[in-house]
Structures are given as structure tokens and as C-alpha cells.
């Protein structure tokens, strides 16, 4: 019982810390699905130049309504879930939101 309450408090704290941010992913090609192969921690970030290795853009990830670091973490998590290897060209959209393209290496 105490453990349950402890977990509830912990999850509430993590929600507050992330500022209730959420992320969405949309594919570049309709109906294309990619198997996840990286953990969020393994997702690489590129900003001004793309990776040197060959890649394709599999979609766009959009995060909203949180602190920048929380939104980036969520974007990496979403990119990993959707089969991405990297996120590229992080754009601060304004109004506490960000977007980036999700890349998959060949």
C-alpha cells in the first residue's frame, strides 16, 4: 500500500517535472512502419548538418507544452518507438513546442 502511494507520488512528480509535455510522430510516407532498434538514449541529435552516413527521413516528430529538455527527451523517446536512429533539425516552434525530422540510417 505504501509502495503504491510512493509510486503515485513519484509519477506525479515526473509529470510535473516534464510540464505535461507530449510528443506526436507522423510518417513522411503514408503507411510506412519501421521496427524500433534503438533506445531513446541511443538516438543521435543533429542540428545544422545531417549525418555523414546514408539515411532517410521517416517522419516528423512534434513535442508540445513543456520545458525544452523534457520535450527533447520525449522527441527522442518517440523517435526510438517509431524506428528512428536520429533526430535532425530541431526547431523551436514557439509557444513551448518543438519539431524535428526523424532519420533512419540505411
Amino acid at each position: 500500500m505504501i509502495m503504491k502511494n510512493y509510486l503515485k507520488v513519484l509519477s506525479s512528480i515526473s509529470v510535473l517535472a516534464s510540464g505535461c509535455a507530449s510528443a506526436q510522430f507522423s510518417t513522411s510516407k503514408v503507411g510506412s512502419l519501421y521496427a524500433p532498434r534503438r533506445t531513446p538514449e541511443q538516438i543521435e541529435i543533429y542540428q545544422t548538418q545531417g549525418p555523414k552516413k546514408k539515411y532517410e527521413e521517416i517522419g516528423i516528430v512534434y513535442a508540445c507544452c513543456g520545458h525544452t529538455d523534457a520535450m527533447v527527451e520525449l522527441m527522442k523517446k518517440k523517435a526510438a518507438e517509431c524506428g528512428g536512429d536520429a533526430i535532425y533539425s530541431l526547431q523551436d516552434t514557439g509557444a513551448h513546442s518543438m519539431n524535428a525530422s526523424v532519420l533512419r540510417f540505411e
Binding site: V30, I60, Y88, S89, N99, S101
Partner: peptide
Amino acid sequence: PASQVLIYKTV
């Protein structure tokens, strides 16, 4: 067809 329209940010 809408299903064939591609959308890219960086490519």
C-alpha cells in the same frame, strides 16, 4: 492521390 504525397522537413 493524397496517400502518395510525401512530407519532408529536411530531405
